[in-house]
Computed example of a mutant assay.
Amino acid sequence: MQRVTVTLDDDLMGEIDRFMGDRGYSNRSEALRDLARAGIAHADEGVGADRACVAALIYAYDPQVRDLARRLVEIHQSRRDLGLGVLATPLGADGRLEVALLEGSTSEVRRLAETITTERGVRHGRLVVVPLGEEARPVVDADGLAYEAQD
């Protein structure tokens, strides 16, 4: 077993302590190991299957972090081929929530999501991937994005 030093802000540490209390953990190491395992398992979902998908990337960030908003815009612009749209809303005085709708191969969508969520100042990030089977194709019409069976 290895010892690792990690710096966490007070709010996150409070959430971890609440998590521990709710689930009966006797120490932080056990809780953090389980959280790490769950995070790794979640990140590995669907790895190896590279097919067309649509996805929603939901992330919260601190707009006060130097140049973060500009970097996020640049990241989205660099992969316009994957973007369907972004919805943004403020989260109080020190936060912002964005939902990016994406479409492309699962590997490219996951790569873009990782690029965004690992930026310094992005607090939370979650990618929800909806694989598209061979029997469905995306169709963009005047009403928005819909899916219909192939002929």
Results as ranks from 00 to 15, higher is better:
A113I: 09
G133T: 12
G133C: 12
A31F: 07
D44E: 15
T7N: 12
D11P: 01
T115D: 02
E30M: 08
A52C: 05
A52S: 15
G92P: 02
V86L: 10
R79Q: 11
G24N: 12
L12I: 09
P131V: 08
L8S: 05
Y25K: 02
I75P: 03
E45G: 06
V65T: 10
R79F: 11
Q150C: 15
A136S: 14
G144I: 07
H124K: 09
L102F: 08
E148T: 11
E135I: 01
T117P: 00
V47T: 09
V122L: 00
A60T: 12
L32F: 06
T117M: 10
L97Q: 09
V109N: 12
A136C: 07
G24S: 12
L132H: 09
L127S: 03
D10P: 04
A56C: 03
G144S: 00
A31N: 05
R120F: 01
V54M: 14
L82P: 11
G83V: 15
R70E: 15
G48D: 11
T89L: 15
A100F: 00
L8T: 05
V130R: 09
H76C: 07
A88N: 05
D62N: 13
G46D: 06
I40Q: 13
L101S: 13
A36F: 12
D81L: 03
V122E: 05
A49G: 13
R70W: 10
D34A: 09
D11E: 10
P63N: 06
R111T: 11
T117V: 14
L35M: 14
R23G: 05
L145D: 09
M20P: 01
S29C: 08
G24H: 13
G121T: 11
R120N: 08
A93W: 06
D94I: 04
A149C: 02
R70I: 11
S29Q: 14
G21N: 14
L101D: 01
T117I: 13
G104Q: 07
R137N: 00
E103W: 08
Y147T: 10
E108S: 11
A142G: 15
L132Q: 05
C53H: 12
A52H: 12
G92R: 04
